[in-house]
């Protein structure tokens, strides 16, 4: 089972992911946790060491942004293995993409999220 932490300031993202991946969740292939801000995500990661395999984070959030979260995840010492980080960028926002890449992001998704493509990516991950 692969645990994914979704970070987005929109609460309805939870409902959406739970419905989009209902079969995978039911079958136990994927497990989702949700955080509504960068700060909340960091707190969750501290509490659940090495459980989270993938972080799926929005960039544009009030308070700690997705990029800041990425920087913290990549710089703060954490027990291995380090989680993969996939950033969700706004359409055409090349600056954020370059910055995220420099900070060590593994992959990107462009808004609006193509869930079929995301599903393929997730299922193709080694630990799935």
């Amino acid at each position: 089972m692969m645990k994914i932490l979704v970070v987005d300031d929109e609460p309805d993202v939870r409902t959406l992911f739970e419905q989009r991946f209902r079969r995978e969740i039911r079958s136990g292939a994927l497990a989702f946790s949700f955080a509504y801000s960068g700060e909340e995500a960091l707190g969750y990661l501290h509490e659940h060491h090495s459980e989270v395999v993938l972080i799926l984070s929005d960039i544009n959030m009030p308070g700690m942004s997705g990029l800041e979260l990425l920087r913290r995840v990549r710089t703060e010492p954490a027990p291995p293995p380090p989680p993969r980080v996939m950033m969700i960028t706004a359409y055409g926002d090349e600056t954020s993409r370059t910055q995220a890449l420099a900070l060590g992001a593994d992959d990107f998704l462009t808004k609006p999220v193509d869930f079929a493509a995301l599903k393929e990516k997730l299922l193709a991950l080694p630990s799935a």
């Binding site: 929109e10 309805d12 959406l16 989009r20 706004a90 808004k111 609006p112 999220v113 869930f115």
Partner: peptide, 11 residues
């Protein structure tokens, strides 16, 4: 506007 539209489409 993009955010709610995404939700409308997705839902």
């Amino acid at each position: 506007i993009q955010n709610p539209l995404n939700f409308v489409n997705n839902f």
